[in-house]
């Protein structure tokens, strides 16, 4: 009895300190979205305050998409996840059951408010004349891309190259594999994540071309300067769809379900779309895109669903142990 009496003031103090403070939201994201979500978070907090009068503080966590998903599975308290590919959120649903398997149907456009694509970053003046995918397999061209087994961005690049070869050879799988194998022969180093590869290419001066997220390529361009590198957009590439989802069980535990949902819906609003486009993501809204004319070159895009039958299938066939990527490196048995 004595004990309970003593704990009551302590509990009151705790609730005064923690309970009445601002709502806290943790957004676990992948590498190149740092700048995007800084802007989004500020704009959303302002809007939420105006609408409900409550303060919301959003923390961000960044890293390789797969690594981030693993952290969430291992218990990182993410209210929302905004990752590089659907497969990683699928993994959270499958391994930790923190959200339902059909999570991708809950928001418009496959739960991807913005898209991106895979482009080439080359040295100033494009000394190796790299214009399209075909140029990447030429002897003497050194290509930088991370390991698709560990990097989400690298999986998009790999599938983009595969899709290009598939389309060029009228769907001939053998020829596509041969093309991708030749491409990886030109890769001198496989970093584990997209940021690592950008550093290898940009800071250490290794390689003639970096396969990169479009938004990451533009960020690198701004950082390094137009006198150092150029962005080359191929005629055909993959439609990269980095999805977003509320992590149901964590949000329910924190009592943040409502604000987490509103946060993700904000990404689809005109304001959110415009912030996305400003940060070099291809917004879904034509209106937002129109505010940045000439920023996003028109190119032919294919989706993972069209050519690979979805992420689960693509992952299993290409990136799992004993898959095509292993075979390319002679790991097969």
């Amino acid at each position: 009895m004595k004990h309970t009496l003593r704990t009551i003031p302590a509990l009151m103090l705790a609730s005064a300190l923690f309970g009445a403070g601002p709502i806290k939201l943790l957004n676990v994201s992948y590498d190149p979205t740092r700048e995007l979500y800084q802007e989004i978070n500020a704009a959303f907090a302002k809007q939420w305050k105006a609408k409900t009068g409550a303060d919301v503080v959003i923390s961000q966590s960044h890293g390789g998409s797969g690594k981030q998903a693993r952290s969430v599975i291992d218990g990182l308290q993410a209210d929302v996840v905004t990752l590089g590919l659907a497969y990683d959120i699928d993994s959270i649903a499958e391994h930790a059951r923190l959200l339902p398997a059909n999570w991708q149907t809950r928001l418009p456009n496959n739960s991807t408010p913005y898209t991106s694509t895979i482009v080439f970053l080359v040295r100033k003046g494009n000394p190796k004349h790299i214009k399209d995918w075909e140029d990447l397999v030429r002897p003497g061209v050194s290509v930088i891309t991370p390991n698709p087994k560990t990097s989400g961005g690298a999986r998009w690049s790999y599938l983009a190259a595969w899709g290009y070869a598939l389309k060029k050879n009228n769907g001939d799988d053998k020829k596509a594999e041969d093309f991708v194998a030749r491409l990886y022969k030109n890769v001198p180093v496989l970093d584990s994540g997209a940021r690592g590869s950008t550093t290898t290419f940009a800071q250490r001066g290794i390689g003639d071309v970096l396969l990169s997220w479009e938004n990451e390529a533009f960020l690198a361009l701004n950082e390094l300067g137009k006198d150092k590198v150029e962005v080359i957009t191929p005629a055909l590439s993959i439609l990269a769809e980095p999805p977003v989802a509320v992590v149901d069980k964590v949000a329910a535990k924190h009592g943040t379900t409502e604000v987490a949902k509103a946060y993700l819906e904000f990404l689809y609003s005109e304001e959110g779309q415009e912030i996305g486009a400003r940060n070099y993501y291809r917004a879904r809204s034509a209106q937002a895109l129109a505010k940045f004319p000439n920023r996003f070159p028109v190119l032919q895009l294919f989706t993972v669903d069209e050519l690979f039958g979805g992420w689960q299938k693509a992952q299993k066939r290409h990136f799992e142990d004993g898959g095509v990527f292993d075979r390319i490196y002679g790991v097969g048995r």
Partner: peptide, 18 residues
């Protein structure tokens, strides 16, 4: 590079990421 310059600790990390 697989088969050439992957050290064992890297493969442990790589398995975790999968």
């Amino acid at each position: 590079l697989p088969m050439k310059t992957e050290i064992t600790p890297l493969l442990i990390v790589s398995k975790l990421e999968q």
